[in-house]
Design a protein around this nucleic acid. Structure first.
Lengths: 212, 212
DNA sequence: TATACTTTGTGAAAGATAGCACAAAGTCTG
DNA sequence: CAGACTTTGTGCTATCTTTCACAAAGTATA
């Protein structure tokens, strides 16, 4: 398989392009140039073309990109033609927000299980999901062929949950707990620390006129 | 003031160091080397030293960093010695999760107002905050000297909300809506797209063995 | 105090990413 | 169908970030 080296940010930007292209298709705009698409997502035309260039040639000189074609191409590159099974661990407010967030299903991400250690929450129904005790995680993850685990528990319990997920054979973890997780090399962890995001903003408030 | 150019990622990593150093202080560990601290947060010792190097010299050759001193230094650099006022716009599940997340207050971020356009939600009490109609945002933001606006509304209404915040004079926006916002140059926007975070993981599931 | 360690801080090298700029390829018009 | 115009794809260059590697500075020990 082609193993050119794809820059870190490219994949993430591809999703931005896809989001905008999807809007364009909905609006029946048949064609768009890299310059205009770039404008719409606040990125340069050159970057957009370069990002796409890692995966092939999708445009037509002189007229730009066919929106329907580009949408299909991006969906294929990004694995949107498949569906993925997701489990949420921790059903506090954040876990609930994730369970009810329509964005996931729209993007081929099916939340198929939820776990919590708090007995008051176990058994609770959210949409078509029943919250299960966390000890069942191993079994359910294997049975339902779950690809991605989302950790939405407090920092103290996050490493323990991660260990459970890893031993259940999960390959990807999205970690909302503000704690650095230690996992084997074959498991990919992506950290989202909500308060760190906010705090980064405060740094710029505290230090006006830094960085580009 | 010193205006060396600080790399994008450095500030974000500083918060990671601070988090870990805070743990160390709690555990009464008086001193730590860059190598060991780096290990704990999965970053290299060299990167850690270089990151700190942008802001001064904090270590002692031969013995490492005094945890209490480094904690204090990082808190000062990162503006943790001040408190910041935050408003949340949109009180769906995500907004609720943010309003009740204890992590913010712990880090000097005071959520002092919440807004929504849905009349069923207006008037609702969450902790000490009453949800207000969104038209009041301009006035409240000015009155309460709010520094940061958090957008947790659906994509369709996000640009409208952003415009309101900007005209109310806000300087920083944390945007959870999956939409590219257009704002004047002096306003800093940070995007957090939860489903994009998950989707980035799916790319790696769909394309095993890419990137470093 | 001298010797053997340890660990920092930082220039210089390597590596990654983004932007420029232009040939090549296509479109459009009369 | 010829000439003017538009827009892509991409080598090259500039910039930004990380890693290397080592002198300088400190610690520890006898």
């Amino acid at each position: 398989m082609s193993s050119k080296k794809i820059p870190e940010g490219t994949v993430s930007r591809l999703f931005i392009y896809l989001r905008e292209i999807t809007n364009l298709v909905k609006m029946n705009i048949p064609t768009i140039s890299s310059a205009e698409l770039g404008d719409r997502v606040n990125l340069s035309d050159a970057q957009l073309r370069k990002d796409l260039g890692y995966f092939g040639q999708f445009g037509v000189s002189g007229s730009g990109y066919d929106t329907v074609e580009l949408k299909a191409a991006l969906e294929k590159i990004l694995g949107k033609d498949k569906a993925w099974n997701v489990a949420v661990i921790g059903v506090g407010h954040l876990g609930l927000a994730l369970l009810t967030y329509p964005g996931f299903k729209e993007h081929g991400l099916n939340i198929v299980a939820a776990f919590d250690s708090n007995t008051r929450r176990i058994g609770r129904q959210i949409k078509d999901i029943t919250v299960q005790p966390i000890d069942k995680a191993d079994k359910v993850i294997a049975d339902k062929k779950i690809d991605i685990g989302v950790i939405a528990v407090p920092a103290e319990s996050s490493q323990g949950v991660a260990d459970k997920l890893v031993s259940a054979g999960i390959k990807c973890i999205l970690n909302f707990a503000p704690e650095t997780l230690t996992v084997p090399g074959h498991v990919r962890v992506k950290d989202v620390d909500l308060s760190r995001e906010l705090e980064t903003l405060t740094y710029f408030l505290a230090n006006p006129g830094k960085k580009s």
